[in-house]
Design a protein around this nucleic acid. Structure first.
Lengths: 313, 313
DNA sequence: GATCAGCTATAGCGATATTGTATAGCTCAA
DNA sequence: TTGAGCTATACAATATCGCTATAGCTGATC
């Protein structure tokens, strides 16, 4: 096995043709034909099925291609390690967030990339966990911040934060950051919540069960903006994380109080596809996101309990 | 860069000598000298520091060696993929468990290896999470089942199970699997628990706080056997997972009841070091452990909530 | 300080491997 | 049927690799 053979395998697989690969690589077509033949002979395996106009990978060829690709990735990492490490990274990366998390993290994340790796093209995607999971699996994004899904085997996740949820009411509701409200006190009161397919709703209902009460869910709305508006106009209270409410509280449009007995929390994780190595670009993005989360929690902007060790800088 | 150069790098690094590597590889020493020189020239990096009797890796050389090793691992995976997949794996693997989990998993795990990969040498290690984490980091074990630690960045974890904890009393305590006990009922009652540095204790105290009560911890003991004995002899009640109690309940030596408001649970995860690729041996072990956990939960032997999708068999 | 053992590095040469050229042969579209 | 587009093989040319010979350095020993 030689690196040139693996390189040829990769290019022929992508182009479906020895002749096209020869043109791309600047090597005569018969040379590539023999490289593939010698690789197939050494492994005693048919990598390609030939037909009249080109060749396509067999199942076994596809499997071996994945390893060959990883070899190339490691060689790139070798070259990267050998080169000046301060050299800015290039390329593009897709990062997914739940909408409210995107609001918090986008600006400092873009600033961090702009400073360290200005040539990187960022693609920041805000969507709900179900969509983000789908895009991770399909390779349309490279990593995502997720509210804790029941992890598929194909994801590698590292916990970031247990995010506290707060009771949100109108400004004259008497709710205060300094006076915790027992969950039981919500019995009989009108609450406005996202729909049952929303993870936050599941957590709130779980807490109601633990507190031994039934919730009076007057309205379901999946948009935080809608929920906030309804609360401001006196249609009931809601339960949300604090960051999207921060400005409304400062402007005395809304009030918030912590909940206890029990304390509703959501688990935030950073997830990567498990079947692809985490490249330096994704690693930088993940580290930066973790640092931003840490900073926001430590400054009190984002109430919750950190679940990871901040990276040493 | 050529594979022969990477292979030479690996052997010279290990032996600290071109001459010794030449002897091992059956190639003349000047040929290896030129291979290393050409690799250093291509990468524009000093991989080795030469001295009078041999050569040792530089920091950069050590970093590049890790990638080179991964390349070799991927090549082995290519050869393995190419060969008959039913061929039993060989080698040795270290797997760590918390003690009670080891009791449950060891026999079916060894049976599964014996059937599919009889030539694999298993090393099953029972220890508490702190020790297991340390051994994972140091490479003394290859994967571990852990009660959910605050994950270090260097681990890749996949969730397995939310394990329910039960209230355990003597047979005449009136405790029954069919009658859940509210956590509040423990107020004022003598309870026997592991010490404060034990994860289970943390969870129980957290639940007590949520229930708004203080626990009367009469005795601390880290051994489940000791706790069981003390309970049997009427010194108080304890809170433990069900599997280690299973036989005692069947023999009417102990009684158990679920707890609610809140329900105490522990999160079980399967962890691998993040800085090493998961080889087929470790992957087989991980899949098998997940299957055993699934089987035990589905048969009711291990009460809890599965957190992963069972592998399709 | 001299000598020797143990090591790495380079030069030159022959053997081997790889690539390029020429071309045969197959498939498929027009 | 013809021609375009492709893969596969044979052979020659070129590049690479390993071997031998040996220079030079370091460090242990006497």
């Amino acid at each position: 096995m030689e690196l040139s053979q693996l390189r040829t395998l990769i290019h022929v697989a992508e182009l479906g043709s020895l002749s096209k690969a020869a043109e791309r690589l600047g090597i005569a077509q018969p040379a590539l034909s023999r490289q593939i033949r010698m690789l197939e002979e050494e492994l005693a395996v048919r990598l390609f099925a030939r037909h009249g106009r080109g060749m396509i990978l067999t199942d076994k060829g596809r499997e071996i291609l994945e390893h060959a690709t990883r070899v190339m990735v490691e060689l790139e990492e070798i070259r990267a390690a050998a080169s000046d490490l301060d050299t800015p990274l290039r390329g593009r990366i897709g990062i997914g967030f739940p909408p409210t998390v995107a609001d918090i993290i986008s600006v400092p994340l873009v600033a961090a990339f702009g400073k360290a790796h200005p040539q990187v093209e960022l693609r920041l995607v805000g969507a709900y966990t179900g969509y983000l999971l789908d895009w991770l699996h399909r390779g349309e994004i490279d990593l995502a911040v997720l509210y804790d899904p029941h992890s598929a085997r194909s994801l590698r996740s590292q916990p970031l934060l247990l995010e506290n949820l707060f009771l949100i009411g109108p400004p004259d509701s008497g709710l205060s950051g300094t006076r915790a409200i027992p969950f039981k006190d919500l019995e009989g009161r009108r609450v406005l919540l996202p729909s049952t397919r929303h993870g936050l709703r599941t957590i709130v209902e779980q807490c109601a069960t633990e507190a031994g009460i039934a919730l009076n869910v007057a309205v379901e709305a999946d948009s935080y903006a809608t929920l906030k508006d309804l609360v401001r106009h006196g249609h009931g209270w809601t339960i949300l994380p604090l960051p999207p409410i921060h400005d409304d509280i400062a402007a005395n449009r809304l009030a918030a109080a912590p909940l206890i007995d029990p304390v509703p929390v959501r688990r935030l994780v950073l997830s990567y596809p498990a079947d692809r190595p985490v490249l330096r670009l994704a690693r930088f993005a993940g580290d930066t996101i973790a640092d931003i989360v840490t900073d926001h929690v430590e400054r009190g902007i984002w109430p919750g309990q950190l679940l990871h060790q901040p990276s040493s800088a």
